[in-house]
Amino acid sequence: MSKAPRDIMLDGLWRDNPIFRQILGICSTLAVTNVVLNTAVMCVSLTVVTMMSCLTVSLLRDWTPRNIRMMVQTLIIAFYVIIVDLILKAYWPEMSRNLGPFVGLIITNCIVMGRCEAFAGSNPPGPAVLDGMFNGLGYSFILLAIAVLRELLGMGTILGFEIPYFATPYWDKWIIMVMPPGGFFVLASILWVCRSIGAKEVKK
């Protein structure tokens, strides 16, 4: 049953990466990946929520009756999401406005629920937190890659800073990249690249 910490990390980051292996949980964040800063805040929020929910679910695992565990998990996740939302509202109101409903949508993000159900519910707190963290990070690095590509190609900036060449008139900005269709295309391309690399590894 027990998994070595190294395996937990590798699984979360690459071998079982929630996005390109399992296509989970892209809904809540893909919409804000046209700006790197918004994406980064969403990724941090998601990682923190996943970690904390996994910890709580794991701590309560011996007491939670099986038939109501989904309800308990939802409640725990919603609890942390509301905390994150309140913190953003109080200390970073501009960001809170920018992200609109997307912070709240972390509740229905399949990754958080999936990790609580698949791993944290039957493992001790230490590994559960690690698992939550690395799944969150595995998710974040793909979304950040999408965001960097979209912002760079679409607006010629990264984190709002103008990038040489891309911000000059020589580069014809691909407006479509910051519009919704661009999100689909970039995600599909990244999936393609990652899966091709993954397939080679398996063949070896």
Binding site: V32, N34, N38, R97, N98, G100
Partner: peptide, 8 residues
Amino acid sequence: DQNETPGL
């Protein structure tokens, strides 16, 4: 106060 599409 606005809730237009983020980034657009």
